[in-house]
Every structure is written in C-alpha cells, then in structure tokens.
Computed example of a mutant assay.
Amino acid sequence: MSIPQLPLALRHSPDQRLETYVNAPDGAIAQLRSLASSDEETAGYRDPSGADWVYLAGPAGVGKTHLLLAACAQADIAGRRAAYVPLSAAVGRLREALQSLDTNNDLLALDGIEAIAGRREDEIALFDTHNRARQAGIAVIYASRENPDELKLTLPDLRSRLSQCTRIVLTPLDDDGRAQVLRQRAQRRGLALEEAALEWMLKRMDRDLGGLTQLLDKLDRASLAAQRRITVPFLKRTIDDET
C-alpha cells in the first residue's frame, strides 16, 4: 500500500503555514517550528520520553490538519524530509502504510489517530512506528479529535506513549477569529473582499471554518472571472448561481 501523495498545491499552499494559523495557544507555533526545523545534530538528543514530540487535540474544524501541513512545509524550508499521513486512509493496513516512513523522513505528521482506535493491529503498527522513530531521532506530530486518555485504544502502551507527548489543545475560533482568517486569505489572493460581504458570510452562512474557506475559494474564482469586487449582491448572486 502506498501513502496517498499530497498535491503540491496543497502541501505547499501559502494558506498552510505556521504563521498563518490564527489564535494558536501561547508557545505552540514556536514549538512546532522548532520541532519541524531541528537539524540532524540535535535530532538524536531529543528527550527519550517523547515529551518534546507534539500531540494536537481538538474537535473538527480547529485547524489540526493546517498545523500538520504547515509543519511539513516548515521542514521542507529547512531542507528536511517530511511525510503527512491521514490515518483514516490506511485503516486496517497501517503497518504497510507506515513501512519505511520512519527511516526515510525527518518528520512524521500523523493525522486522525481516532481512526485507528480499537483496531489492535493498527495500534500495534503505530506503537512500533513510534518506538522506531524515537530511536532514530525522528520528530513526530500527532493529531486527534480526542486526548490520549479519551481514545478507545486497546493497547495501553500506545496510550502511554501518546500521553508523553507535549499536548497542544486547539479550540474553535469565534467570529472575530474566523473573520481574521478570511481577511488574511483574501489578502494573499489579492481578492477585494468588502467588510459588509465578510460580515454577511459570518452571519448567514455555515460558520464552520472549512466551509467558509471553501466558499471564499469559489468567490475568488467567480470574482476573477467577472472582474468584480466581492460585495454583498455579488456574494448572494454567486451563491444563488450554485444552488
């Protein structure tokens, strides 16, 4: 089984950067940047307990995948090799999926631990990968919707290893935070997004950040095609045209 390859546009998207994440917990971005950028000389001296590795926890839509991809991009900038693995794509075949990743990379970003919880063979495969990566001085960042003690794991040793990681708890953004994200993304695209249109989106549309950013992408394409600013009337017309 081969790991699904990320499109270059996704892996290296300017939206997926550590510095573009909004309202991160204090120290979180610096810690992820340090872990992703560590050189080979320091990699072998990491805390043997795994306490310097990172475990991102939080519900859907808080930006866990954003931070994992951003860490991979940071590693790439530092000249290091990184692999992003969505575990949901490897359920039931995780050992095969992870084979060789912990020897061919400097950073592993493992997304969606909850997907393999309760699947003993997958849990053992992840446990073995964790131990091999630790011995090789490879950095690992985990992400899950649940804290380690909340995961329905059958392997106590895996829970113990995950619990030793530094935990970063992510929380959903409020409307001010969502607005900041959308403004930043619009600015990076050179997109003329009027404040009234932004307020309308936040009040009238699904407030899930993923859905809002997808809508912004659609508006970007429509605005480019029409050579128009994104006003409330243009926003409404674009939405109506797609329904």
Rank of each mutant, 00 (worst) to 15 (best):
M1I: 12
P4R: 08
L8S: 13
Y21H: 10
N23K: 11
P25A: 11
D26K: 10
G27H: 07
I29E: 08
S34G: 06
S34D: 08
L35S: 02
S37W: 03
S38D: 06
E40W: 14
D47V: 08
D52L: 08
W53T: 06
V54K: 07
G61D: 09
H66D: 04
H66W: 11
H66I: 07
H66T: 09
L68G: 04
C72F: 05
A73T: 14
Q74R: 14
D76N: 14
R80L: 15
Y84D: 06
P86F: 07
A90Y: 01
V91H: 00
R95L: 09
E96M: 06
N104G: 05
L108H: 09
A109W: 07
A115C: 04
G118K: 01
R119H: 13
E121Y: 01
E123Q: 02
E123M: 03
L126T: 04
N131K: 06
R132C: 06
A133S: 14
V140W: 05
V140H: 07
A143I: 11
S144C: 12
E146Y: 12
E146Q: 13
N147I: 02
E150D: 12
L151S: 10
D157P: 02
T166E: 05
T166A: 13
V169K: 11
L170H: 02
T171W: 03
D175F: 03
D175N: 14
G177W: 01
G177M: 03
Q184K: 11
R185P: 00
A192I: 10
E194F: 01
A196V: 02
L198F: 01
L202D: 05
D208Y: 05
L209A: 08
L215E: 02
L215C: 01
L216E: 03
L216C: 03
L216M: 04
L219H: 00
A222T: 08
S223W: 05
A225S: 15
Q227Y: 02
Q227P: 00
T231R: 00
P233T: 08
L235V: 03
K236V: 14
R237G: 01
D241L: 10
E242F: 04
E242M: 06
